[in-house]
Computed example of a mutant assay.
Amino acid sequence: MAKNYVRENVPLSRFGVLVAQLESIVASATQQSPDPILCFDLLSDLISAIDEEPKDSILLWQRKCEDALYSLLVIGARRPVRHLASIAMARIISKGDGISIYSRASSLQGFLSDGKRSEPQRVSGAAQCLGKLYQHFGRRITSGLPETAVIATKLFKFH
């Protein structure tokens, strides 16, 4: 039976450990709401690690990190955690493989348009991250900005 491990025999860096911790927090969120202080500290360390880590290492963990950040945002993280997760998402994409900006922006916009109207924290997380990506990547992805603004306005009026 073939193994599906992409990172087999790759030494675990500080960044990789932080991504694994973030994945663990997100995975356990169904049983227990993530501790905001723990998330805040972890995301602060993650942002520092992104700045310090070489691009090759970032590329190894980028998708897992993006997935974990996305999950954290859409489970309803509070404002300071949303802010740091949004910054981390922009930095990881900026330093790693920039092509993923299109899929991340699209998935966040899709989350907003699905209309999870009963959960303002979840909507706020996706909207804040999308705003940070628009701010950071500018013209590369702003073709979707008017549509996102209309969706977000409708959702926030509902709340």
Rank of each mutant, 00 (worst) to 15 (best):
L130K: 04
R122V: 09
R117P: 02
S106A: 14
G96H: 03
S113L: 10
S100R: 08
K95C: 08
I99C: 06
G98K: 15
I101W: 06
R104A: 02
G98N: 13
S103P: 02
D114F: 14
S124T: 12
K116I: 13
R122C: 14
R122L: 14
P120E: 08
R117E: 11
L112Q: 06
R117Q: 07
L133S: 01
V123Q: 07
G131L: 08
L133H: 03
D97E: 15
R122P: 00
V123Y: 02
S100F: 15
F111I: 06
S94N: 09
G98C: 11
Y134M: 14
G115W: 10
S118H: 15
S124M: 14
K132D: 00
L108Q: 05
D97L: 07
G98F: 08
S94H: 08
C129W: 01
G125E: 07
G131H: 10
Q128C: 10
A105F: 01
R104D: 02
F111R: 00
S106G: 11
S106R: 15
S107H: 06
A127L: 07
Y102W: 12
R122Y: 05
E119P: 02
V123P: 00
Y102G: 02
K95E: 07
K116H: 15
D114P: 00
A126Y: 03
G131A: 12
S113P: 00
R104I: 10
V123G: 03
R122A: 13
Q109E: 12
K132H: 05
A127D: 10
G115E: 03
K116F: 15
I101L: 09
L130S: 05
L108C: 07
C129G: 01
S94K: 09
A105N: 05
P120A: 14
S103H: 09
S100V: 13
V123E: 02
A127V: 11
L112R: 00
Q109Y: 09
S113H: 04
I99D: 12
G96Y: 04
L130V: 10
L112I: 14
K95A: 09
C129A: 12
Q128T: 12
K116E: 11
L112D: 03
C129L: 05
Q121T: 07
Q109V: 01
S94M: 06
Q109S: 13
S118L: 15
G98Y: 06
R117W: 12
L112S: 05
R122W: 04
K95I: 04
S124N: 14
L133M: 14
K132P: 00
S100T: 14
L130H: 07
Q128D: 13
A105E: 04
K132Q: 13
V123N: 03
V123R: 04
G131C: 13
S113D: 09
S113F: 07
Y102I: 06
S94Q: 10
K95G: 01
L112M: 15
L108N: 00
S113N: 08
G125H: 05
G125Q: 00
I99Q: 12
G115Q: 05
R122T: 08
Y134Q: 00
Q121Y: 12
S106L: 11
F111C: 03
Q109N: 10
G96P: 03
L108R: 02
R104C: 01
C129S: 09
A105M: 13
R122I: 10
G115N: 04
P120K: 10
Q128I: 08
A126V: 07
I99K: 13
Q121H: 12
L133V: 01
